[in-house]
Amino acid sequence: MNIVENFDLFAPRLINKKELLSGGHRACSGCGEVLAVRLMCKALGENTVIASATGCMEIVTSMYPTTAWEVPWIHVAFENAAAVASGVEAGLKALRRKGKIADCDIKVVGMAGDGGTMDIGMQALSGAMERGHDMLFVCFDNEAYMNTGIQRSSGTPMGASTTTAPAGKVSMGQKTWKKNMAEIMVAHNVPYVATACPSYPLDFIRKVEKAKKVKGPSYIHCFSVCPTGWRCPSDQTISLGRLAVETGIFPLYEVENGKYKLSAEMPKKLRPIKEYYKSQGRYRHLGEDEIKMIQDRVNKEYKKLLNKVQCLEAWS
C-alpha cells in the first residue's frame, strides 16, 4: 500500500512504516477516528492485543468475514472493553508465570468511543484503572453515539444538536457541559494520562509510545473529528481538529505522575471559538449569546488547566 510518497526520505524514524490497520475498511470519508486508530497501531507495534468496545471502529473494521486488523483483536460487548482488556492482561500474566509464553512485553490496549468510555463503560474503566493493570486505554471521542445515528453522550459538548438532544425553538440542543474524562482519569492517580488529536500525528504517536512504556495503567483521550455527525465537509477533518486545539476547546496536555505539561502544539494565544462553531452544522442554530457563554467557559477551563500546569508537582 502506497502510504506516503518518499516516506523513507521524510519520516523513516518518526513513524513505523508498517500498517497494522489495513485499508479497505468501511469508515466514512474523512473519518478522524479511524485515522487515529491507524496512528495508534503504528505507535504500538505488532506486540499488542487490542480489546475494542462496540462502536464505529468495531463495525467498520471487522465486518465478518473481513478484518482490517493485523494485530490480535477482541470485541465482546459495549460496556466492558476495559474489563476484557484487564482479563487479557491477567491471562497473559498467568501464561507468563507458568512459562507458557516468553517473558516479553505485550501491551494490552482497550479502546472505546466516548459512549463506551464515559457512559456505559465508565464503571469497567474505573475498575481497571484502580486495579492498576498494565494496560493502555484509549478513548476515541467523537462527541456522540455516531454508530447508532448521532445520539447525545456525556461527551457531547454544550449546544450541539443531536438526534436525542435536537435543537429547536425551545432547546439549544445539548444542555450540559462535556464530561472531562481526562480529569477523571487523573483523579484515579494513574501514572500517565494524555489528551491527543490525530490532527497532530507526531504528538499523538509520541504520546502512545510514552504510554506503551509505562508499567501500569495509562489513558489517552483522543479527539476524533466526525464529519458525518458534526455536519461538516469531510475534507475539514484535520483543520477542525487543529482548530479545536488552537481555540482551547480541546487543549493538548499530558499528566505524568500527577505533573501536568502542555503539549508543544498549544499556541501562546488562543483563537476565538466562533470560527470553530460556525464551521459545523451541529452548532448552526447557536447565536452570538450562546457562543459568548461557551467562550467564557472555555477561557475559564483553560485558565484552570494553566494553573494546574504551573502549580501541581509530580508525586515521584
Binding site: 453515539y145 447508532t148 445515528g149 445520539q151 438526534t163 436525542t164 429547536g168
Partner: peptide, 20 residues
C-alpha cells in the same frame, strides 16, 4: 428513558423530540 441501540434508535429519537 432510553439508550441508543440499533434497530430501536428511532423510538428514542421520537421520544426525544415529542415527549417535550
Amino acid at each position: 428513558a432510553g439508550y441508543p441501540i440499533t434497530p430501536q434508535n428511532e423510538l428514542t429519537e421520537y421520544m426525544a423530540e415529542h415527549m417535550r
